[in-house]
Design a protein around this nucleic acid. Structure first.
Lengths: 340, 340
DNA sequence: AAAACAAATCGAAACGTTTCGATAAATTTC
DNA sequence: GAAATTTATCGAAACGTTTCGATTTGTTTT
C-alpha cells in the first residue's frame, strides 16, 4: 500500500512537503510540486480518505437513509437532496436499514462516519437518532416527527392531502367514501386519515363502516378491497392510503366485475410512476418530493452552519386529477357478496 | 467530542483496557467491562469509525455506484447485492457519479474508502476503474466490458435477448421488423441489435431501412417511432432497445391511429415495473437483475478472499410474453404519411 | 510461604494523514 | 556584503482507534 510517505521519499522531500504539494497548497515551489506529483503518479498513489477525515475532523459527506435502497418511491426526493448536497461541495451516500441494528444505517450513524443525515425510514429508532444527532451531524427526518437537538422534521402536509382528496370526491357528489389506510405505525397514513375524517365531518358524515387498513402493498390493497366489497353495502368511492394499494384495489374491483370509475371512483396517494399508465389513469395526490428533498438537504447545511432553523416543516400537497373518478350513480351501490 | 480516552479516564482504566472492554474481548474481567460500558453510556461515547478503519486497514463496506441514485431501473439488482453483502457481514452504500470527477463515486473509489465496488454506471472511466481496483478493492462492472486486474464483468446476455425477441416475432410470422435502439455508447444496446440482426439473417432478411436510434427515454422512443411511421413502408413489428422507448412508441402509434398489437406488434427490453400495467401489457425481455446483483456481490467477496474467479460472466435472459404481439395481417402495412 | 503460572491491566507503537511552529534557503533591502 | 525579510522545506505532534508485548495482580501448586 503506497502512502504519502513513500511518495515523499521517492520525490526526495519531507512528508509534510509532499502533503502540501498534493493538496495544492501554494506554500510549495512549483518545481517541487511537480516533482511530488510525478512521484505520486509513478507510484500510483491513492490517498487514504479516512486518515484525512480523521485529521480534519470532518467527512464532507451526508448520509441518506432509506428503508429499502431498491424502492422506487424516492426517486425525485433523492434527486433533490443530491443536487443540493453536491452544490454545497458535499458528497451524498445512501444506505438502508435492512439488517436492523447491524445495518449499514446504524453503523454509519453510530460511528460518526458522516457530517449529516437525512432519514426516510420508519425503522430507525428515535433513540438512535437522538443519540447520533449532534453539532457536527444534524439530522433531518422525513415523514415522521422526532424531537431532539439537531433533529429537524420535513413532511408533506398529509392532513391537507387527505382532506383535499376526500373533498374532491365529495364535490363530485360522493358521500359513501371508504378509506383503506396504511399500517398504523405510519404517521403519514394516520394524517391522511385525519384529513379524510375532517372532510367527512364537515359534511356531517360519520363514517365508521368503511375504514380498513392495508400494509401499503399492492397485495394488501387487494385483500382489503375484497373485504370491503363483500360487505352488504358498498361505497361509491374508495380513497387509498397509497398508490400501490390502489393498484391492488383495481384488481379486486375487476374481479368483482366492477369498473372504475363507472361503478366506483378511486383516489390514490403518492403519484408513483405507474399511476398515469394504469387504466384508467389514477387520480391521486402528489407529494412535493423534489422540494422535500431539497429542503431537507438545505436544512442540514443550515444547521451545520449553526444557523437557527425551525424544527419542523410541512409542505403543501397537490391533487393530480386523472380519470379514476366521476360522480356517483344516483342509486346507492348495493353489495351482492362475492362473485368469483 | 468524547473519545475512548475520556471513557477510559472516567472508568479509571487504561485506554487499551477500555478498548478491549468496548470491543467485547475476553481479555478483560467482567467487572471492569461493566465499568467501562457504564462510563461509555454516561458520556454518550460514540466510536469513531474512521480511526478504527484506519487501524484495521479494512472498511468492511462495499460501494454500489449508480449513474443516477434516483433511477428505478436497479431495484431488483440492488436487492440482490444488498442481501449478499449483508450476509457476508459487510455494509453496502450507494452513490452516483453525478458531478463527474467531483462526484461521490470518484471520491470514494480514489480515496480507498471501501473494500470493493459494484459499478452500474457508464460514466465511470475505465481509467479510474483500473486505477482503483486492487487486491483490497476488487471491482465488478455491470453491463459493460472492462479489462484489468481485480476487475470482473457481469452482464446479461444481450445478444441472446435481442435474438430471442426477434425470433419470437418471426415465429409469429413477422418479417418486417423495425429496431429502435439506444445510444451507441451503450454496449447493451449494441448487443441487442446484434442479436436482432443475427435472427434476421438466419431467415435471409437484410433489413436496413428500419433501424433507428433513440436515447433510451420515452421521449426518444416517441420521436423515433414517429420518424419510422412517416416512412413510405411500415414494419409490422417494432423491437425497442428498452421499455421506456416502447412506452414512447405506444404513444406515437396512438397518435397515428394505429393500435397495438392489431396493427403493429411491439417488444420492449428490460421489463420495468410499468410494463405489465401498460395497455396492452408489454411483451418484453427480462434481464435476471436479481441474479446479476447477487452474482456481482459474490464475485466481489470471492475476489477479496483471493479465490480465482473468471473475469467475465454472462447471464441468460428471459422473454416475458404479454399482449403486445400477434401475427401480422396478411396484407403488408402501407404508410400514408402523418395523420395528426 | 515461596515458586510457578494464569489472568488482568497497562504503556506504547502504529495506521496515514494534516498542520503548526521551527529551520533552512533564497531573496530583498540598506 | 551583512542584515532583514520573504519563501520553501522540514520535523513532530495530533487525530482516535487497535493490538503487541510487558507488567502487575491474583491464583494455584509445591
Amino acid at each position: 500500500m503506497v502512502t504519502i510517505k513513500d511518495v515523499a521519499k521517492h520525490a526526495g522531500v519531507a512528508l509534510s512537503t509532499a502533503s502540501y504539494a498534493l493538496s495544492g497548497s501554494d506554500k510549495v515551489s512549483p518545481k517541487t510540486r511537480e516533482l511530488v506529483l510525478q512521484a505520486a503518479k509513478e507510484l500510483n498513489y491513492q490517498k487514504n480518505g479516512f486518515a484525512m477525515d480523521l485529521k480534519r475532523k470532518s467527512t464532507k459527506t451526508i448520509l441518506l437513509i432509506l428503508s429499502d435502497l431498491s424502492g422506487p418511491y424516492y426517486s425525485e426526493l433523492i434527486r433533490g437532496t443530491q443536487e443540493v448536497t453536491l452544490s454545497n461541495g458535499f458528497d451524498l451516500i445512501a444506505c438502508s436499514s435492512v439488517g436492523g441494528a447491524d445495518s449499514t444505517a446504524y453503523k454509519f450513524l453510530q460511528e460518526r462516519r458522516v457530517d449529516g443525515a437525512i432519514v426516510l425510514d420508519p425503522n430507525i429508532s428515535e433513540h438512535l437518532l437522538r443519540e447520533s444527532a449532534r453539532e457536527g451531524c444534524p439530522i433531518v427526518v422525513m415523514d415522521r416527527y422526532v424531537e431532539g437537538d439537531f433533529i429537524m422534521n420535513v413532511a408533506a402536509d398529509n392532513v391537507q392531502g387527505g382532506y383535499e382528496a376526500t373533498r374532491y370526491l365529495m364535490d363530485q357528489g360522493h358521500r359513501d367514501i371508504a378509506w383503506i389506510g396504511g399500517p398504523s405505525n405510519s404517521l403519514g397514513s394516520q394524517h391522511r386519515k385525519e384529513g379524510y375524517l375532517k372532510a367527512l365531518q364537515e359534511e356531517g358524515i360519520a363514517n365508521t363502516k368503511w375504514m380498513l387498513v392495508g400494509n401499503f402493498t399492492e397485495e394488501g390493497g387487494y385483500h382489503s378491497t375484497k373485504v370491503l366489497l363483500m360487505q352488504e353495502e358498498r361505497p361509491t368511492a374508495i380513497f387509498y392510503g397509497n398508490d400501490e394499494m390502489a393498484i391492488g384495489g383495481y384488481k379486486a374491483l375487476r374481479e368483482f366485475g366492477l369498473s372504475v370509475p363507472e361503478d366506483v371512483s378511486i383516489v390514490g396517494f403518492d403519484d408513483i410512476q405507474v399511476a398515469e399508465y394504469l387504466s384508467p389513469p389514477l387520480t391521486t395526490v402528489r407529494q412535493p418530493k423534489y422540494e422535500m428533498g431539497t429542503m431537507a438537504a438545505h436544512l442540514v447545511f443550515q444547521a451545520m452552519g449553526g444557523e437557527y432553523v425551525n424544527k419542523s416543516y410541512k409542505l403543501k400537497i397537490e391533487l393530480i386529477e386523472r380519470l379514476s373518478c366521476q360522480p356517483p350513480r344516483l342509486a346507492p351501490n348495493r353489495g351482492k357478496g362475492m362473485e368469483t
